[in-house]
């Protein structure tokens, strides 16, 4: 079987695409790439559609061996890498031949990076997506993290020679200082002082932050009328505040419903920015009106489109 073989797996590498939509009403978490912009860049470098299934690595990354005649692979992220023991640069594509070995990681900044292969990772789609949701064992490779010995199925045995593509990461848009949120849907469960605490304090990413929830540690946020609501749907980036007053941002692997009040929701691009923060890093929030949020999201999409247009053949 045509495959990319995993020689050594990092702490949390999974197959991800844009996510699994349409089944949240049945309790199925969407999953999907924690940083969709980086997934799109890796895919474009490899010659794929922006949402093709690729590998999402966390901090340390993996070692692979090419187990097909040839393949084309690209890496998006500020990450150290070696091909057959020689230092190599990320942010570009490579055509590799059978037996070549690739060591990717650790990442130098951020937390998550992407390895795309031309044609995509060809594991079977589940409910319309190849994204891995580890907690329920759905999607990707047997619904779990990658491990040494895995053979990641590929769509093709060989790829044609063509100019390789590159991306200059200096083109990435500068990140605003604060993580942007829209208050609600349950901001009425908090006192004005509680909301002022939330928007005016530093919060540190907890050690056990993961793809489901990013627990944050800082000054306790004061509730106005208890910390239980009648369970409702949890939007992407919803920030719930349980009884201890410590906020938890709910990420791609979040449970579909929950019963804690949500003081605010991160805007989409800033869910990805939070997903790139390492444990201990401090974050601070800023509230936008819905109209300002829409403006910010459109601007971000335009900048990503410019980035993708800036992916060109290497000199």
């Amino acid at each position: 079987m045509s495959a990319l073989r995993v020689v050594q797996a990092g702490p949390y590498s999974t197959v991800q695409d844009a996510g699994r939509f349409g089944s949240q009403r049945f309790g199925i978490s969407p999953a999907g790439a924690a940083d969709p912009a980086l997934l799109a860049i890796a895919n474009r470098l490899a010659g794929n559609a922006p949402d093709a299934a690729a590998i999402e690595c966390t901090l340390l990354g993996d070692t692979y061996e090419v187990a097909v005649e040839s393949l084309r692979l690209a890496v998006a992220g500020d990450v150290a890498m070696k091909i057959d023991g020689e230092a190599a640069a990320p942010w570009r594509s490579y055509r590799l031949a059978r037996g070549q070995k690739l060591r990717i990681g650790p990442c130098r900044t951020g937390l998550r990076f992407y390895v795309a292969v031309e044609g995509g990772i060809a594991c079977a789609p589940v409910l319309g997506s190849r994204a891995t949701h580890v907690r329920t064992g759905i999607g990707g490779i047997e619904g779990r993290r990658l491990k040494a010995g895995d053979a990641l199925p590929l769509a093709q045995d060989a790829v044609a020679t063509r100019p390789e593509l590159g991306f200059d990461p200096a083109r990435l848009p500068p990140a605003p200082e604060r993580l942007r949120v829209v208050l609600g849907p349950q901001d009425d469960y908090f006192t004005p002082a509680g909301i002022a605490t939330f928007l005016g304090s530093d919060y540190a990413v907890a050690r056990d932050a993961d793809r489901m929830g990013c627990r944050l540690e800082g000054p306790a946020i004061e509730h106005a009328k208890g910390h239980n609501i009648i369970s409702d749907g949890i939007p992407l980036g919803g920030i719930q505040v349980p009884g201890n007053g410590q906020p938890i941002a709910l990420m791609r692997d979040r449970q579909t419903t929950g019963g804690y009040p949500k003081i605010a929701c991160l805007i989409g691009p800033d869910v990805a920015r939070l997903a790139q923060k390492r444990p201990g890093e401090a974050v601070r929030f800023a509230a936008l009106s819905p109209a300002e949020a829409q403006e910010a999201v459109r601007a971000q999409a335009a900048r990503l489109a410019e980035c993708l247009a800036g992916i060109v053949p290497l000199e």
Partner: peptide
Amino acid sequence: MVETVPTYRSLLVYFDPLRCDPA
């Protein structure tokens, strides 16, 4: 619209803000 999540007393409606005017 992308998908909906009906719960006890509310409906969560997901949409793509790049494909519609949220207002």
